[in-house]
Amino acid sequence: MRVEVLGIKIDHFSMQETVAHIQEAVEKKKQTWVVTANPELIFAAGADARLKQLINRAQLVTPDGIGVVWAANRLGHPVSERVTGIDLLEALFPLIGKKKWRVFFLGSKPGVAELAAQKVAEQYPGVEWQAQHGYFQPGEQAEILDRIRKFQPDLLLVGLGAPRQEFWIASHPDLATVNMGVGGCFDALAGLNKRAPQWIRNIHLEWLYRLLKQPQRIRRQMVLPKFVWQVMKQGKNEQKKHTRRVR
């Protein structure tokens, strides 16, 4: 089941269910694309028909953030919980270590993906990994693609920033069993950007914590009021359509 938020179809799965779907995909070698859809990405897709089409082709689209959970509830199709990129990774890593999956970390500044992978492997020794920063030149891409294919990852984590990572994954869908765009997660995994304390996450104010720590995010956060307004408009339009059908 999916709920449509501004034209993007969001899965109703809980964190546990999402992890189970990814595990099944890897074990059955079923190619799967995971999109963690936050309000900014959903809003951007509203102005880019190609991006919207690509996201709606993904096998798993998670509600990344309390804003998307609110939108689903507002539209009368509640989802059980938010499934953010970093939380999903942290839920997956124990399984990845146990199952000895092969994970390729692609993205972020030079050295960051490697550091993130090393820290993950220290905590979960079964993880097999390779890493590549995201500041490669167009002429280097063929070599990187060949390297990923030879590694044969079960999981390819692409941290090139949204929506660039979504377009990149869509252009190279056969590199791994499961492809997932992870935005700036490598910085958090590497310990460069500390996450909000758990109590702040529990009250759904991690976005504010990150804004206070990184004031430059204010431009991105300006999308949120526009996102809320568009969701309210969608709700009103759907209510009008329902009223006409009843009549």
Rank of each mutant, 00 (worst) to 15 (best):
Q198I: 04
P125A: 06
A188M: 14
P153M: 04
K100N: 15
P153V: 07
V112D: 12
D174N: 15
I200H: 01
L189N: 09
V178I: 11
L106D: 10
K150C: 01
V120D: 06
A162S: 13
L115A: 13
S171K: 13
K109W: 03
V112L: 11
I203S: 02
L156G: 12
G181S: 05
M180Q: 13
A117E: 11
G191F: 03
I200A: 14
V127R: 08
V120E: 08
L106M: 09
P110F: 13
Y124E: 13
P125V: 01
K98Y: 10
Q152F: 01
Q152G: 00
L175Y: 09
G134D: 06
L192T: 08
Q152P: 00
A196W: 04
F186T: 09
K119N: 12
W129F: 15
I169Y: 07
E143T: 14
S108G: 10
G111A: 05
H133P: 04
Q141T: 05
E128G: 00
A188I: 14
S108A: 15
K119Y: 06
Q141F: 00
Y124V: 11
R201N: 04
G161L: 03
W129E: 06
Y124I: 06
P94A: 10
G191Y: 06
G126T: 09
I144L: 14
A176V: 06
L95M: 12
G191E: 04
Q132K: 12
L95P: 07
K119I: 09
E122M: 13
G184R: 05
Q130R: 15
L155Y: 06
Q123I: 06
Q123D: 12
C185S: 15
F151A: 12
A176L: 09
F105T: 05
P110T: 13
A121T: 07
G191Q: 03
A131T: 10
A190S: 03
P153A: 04
K194A: 13
L160K: 04
G139H: 06
G107Y: 06
L189G: 10
A113H: 12
W168C: 10
K99S: 08
V127P: 12
